[in-house]
Write a protein that binds this DNA or RNA. Structure first.
Lengths: 339, 339
DNA sequence: GGTGTTTTCGAAAACGTTTTCGATATATAT
DNA sequence: ATATATATCGAAAACGTTTTCGAAAACACC
């Protein structure tokens, strides 16, 4: 019931471990005869190299780490999908860890991965985090490293992002073109770069369309949940009954807004037009269907791994590596909520 | 820029590697003086044991593998959540692989994990799969192994399941109690045990309530998608205009049914009452809100890891291990679609 | 000072692989 | 025949840790 090793093959064949290893790896300095004998016996004994030993010897594990705020999230689970798929093609396995939007935990997860000696790390920062010590530590150790979506701008790693400001600008302008005059914005927490950028895009769109910006029309999420969407919708209706457009940081929140409006019979899109962000699956099955910004989540994952692979390969060859930033494009999806 | 090793610490302190190792692991046979010296230097040099070496030596990687049909799925992402959370508490990392509902791929993923020498494997079978060779291989190698949700009944491993038949029985009976006389069932593919069991539960509920079973009222999904839900809804309305209840294999399909009914203005629940399965988040935000069977997905993940841990620990201690099956309970959630 | 006990340490083997480099043996050329 | 090139192999080191076992040193006791 023991695992087959090179040693066993070598002994039964009466040759050295070295030769067995070479035969298996197609080294040129082993005769066809011995090679075949080794290959056959290896097959019969179902030999597979002990990856622990290989890891130790080659100093790589063909495993990467991924840290995201949460798995149960349409956007992130799609990203995971893209990363796993791309990684698998290249023979890499993926360890997934969650930060639960906590910087404390994120720090711990980074340490776990560092200690595990993964070949590379991909991360989307938690809301509390922003290029702190633990992120710098990754850079210091020169572990191949890619940030996506929620990034620390100042950390000079590879990055995969969308142009949040531009996308938010377009979303807001979409509402304006549809006739909205007074548009509220439910924004994300203060820290994350993408919440900031989306807010700036919103503001810019107002300014460029001669609509005065009013900070009272901006509501800030703590946890970016469905419930917050409902709460803020109620608040907006109470504070500013003449609001005719709402741009929410993400579809989940927008759906919360929609749910509240449905409950209190505020007609959407007649009285208020709504647009979300990220194109969650849910958005196309609710009533009314939610307009949103399509964000290529699968591609974001795939591209993130691609950049990571570039760096891993470069470092393996001892070549210098300069981080790259890839910006993926977004598009407005018009559905019933802004018709 | 090199990693610190036991050797380095030993040399700078002028002691042996053995003693350093023992000091760090709190062996009793090292004096307080040397221990402290080691501990301090280790801290200063930021020593962390090389996990590749530890793996090789201890023959365990503190890593487990998880194979599921797909990550982008409300149920499975919740399970992942439960597994990762529980694993982390015990110092285990989780490698996630997808079978994409393909047996071919599932087979490959099992091999990957086996070669990677993970300490244990948790799996939910693809629709095409049912205890085939690759699953038996896991058992043969005596790798700690847990199946959940979609299981191969005949494989004697630990299992975490719900009583699909009972849950489906209750769901169907719920519709009956609400007055439905002619209930259609959109079932899952032929292979998976849980699709079979849910179908049997549906059938049994009809029989026990003196409603004749009609195989023409059973529609079989291929891919269990939103689109299939829509398609079958259309078909049901055409084939059997007098159907007044539909029990769908999962919420995603039920939402498809709902979407079609909304499109063609079939009033839900007045004309047809609908119940789904799994309690996806989506179900509570659509119109009308979907009745469903709540399935404790997070707990399923957590429990799966728990059982795996039991087996991993038992095997480590060389103790015999007898697999356990844990059945988690479900509950009917009544919402608008069956009022 | 002898005997026995306890404390503290380190040599060495082992985990299984990869790779370098040198040693044969065989073939080719002069 | 000798010298040179080529084909085939294996010894050994290395990766960094853990653990067994024995040795040495320190201490106790009479």
């Amino acid at each position: 019931m023991k695992e087959t090793t090179l040693k066993q093959i070598a002994e039964t064949l009466g040759i050295s471990i070295t030769t067995v290893s070479k035969a298996l790896k197609n080294y040129p300095d082993v005769s066809a005869k011995t090679r075949n004998a080794v290959l056959e016996l290896a097959k019969n004994l179902q030999y597979t190299p002990n990856s622990f030993a290989v890891n130790l010897r080659t100093k790589e594990s063909r495993t990467i780490g991924l840290i995201i705020p949460e798995v149960v999230h349409h956007f992130f689970s799609n990203v995971i999908n893209g990363i796993i798929a791309e990684a698998e093609k290249q023979g890499y396995l993926v360890i997934i860890l969650q930060s639960n939007e906590s910087m404390e935990l994120e720090k711990k997860q980074v340490e776990l991965l560092l200690n595990k000696r993964v070949d590379g790390i991909i991360i989307s920062l938690s809301n509390e985090s922003n290029g702190d010590e633990h992120i710098k530590e990754i850079m210091r150790r020169e572990i191949p490293f890619v940030q996506f979506d929620k990034i620390a701008k100042l950390i000079p790693s590879s990055k995969v992002i969308i142009n949040d400001q531009k996308a938010a600008f377009e979303a807001t302008e979409h509402l304006i073109k549809k006739g909205c005059k007074k548009i509220a914005h439910i924004r994300g927490p203060v820290n994350p770069q993408n919440a900031i950028d989306r807010f700036l895009g919103y503001k810019k769109a107002l300014e460029q369309n001669q609509i005065p910006f009013d900070s009272k029309l901006v509501y800030t999420c703590q946890n970016v949940t469905f419930e917050e969407g409902k709460t803020f919708a109620k608040q907006i209706l109470a504070d500013h009954p003449d609001v005719d457009g709402i741009f929410a940081i993400t579809d989940l929140v927008a759906v919360g807004v929609l749910a509240h409006c449905n409950e209190v019979n505020v007609p959407i899109p007649q009285q208020i037009k709504i647009i979300g962000f990220s194109n969650w699956f849910m958005s196309q099955v609710i009533t009314p269907k939610l307009s949103t910004v399509d964000q290529p989540s699968y591609e974001m994952g795939a591209k993130s791994f691609e950049l990571l692979l570039e760096e891993m390969n470069a470092r393996k060859d001892g070549k210098p590596f300069t981080p790259r930033t890839v910006e993926l494009s977004t598009s407005i999806i018009e559905r019933e909520s802004s018709k």
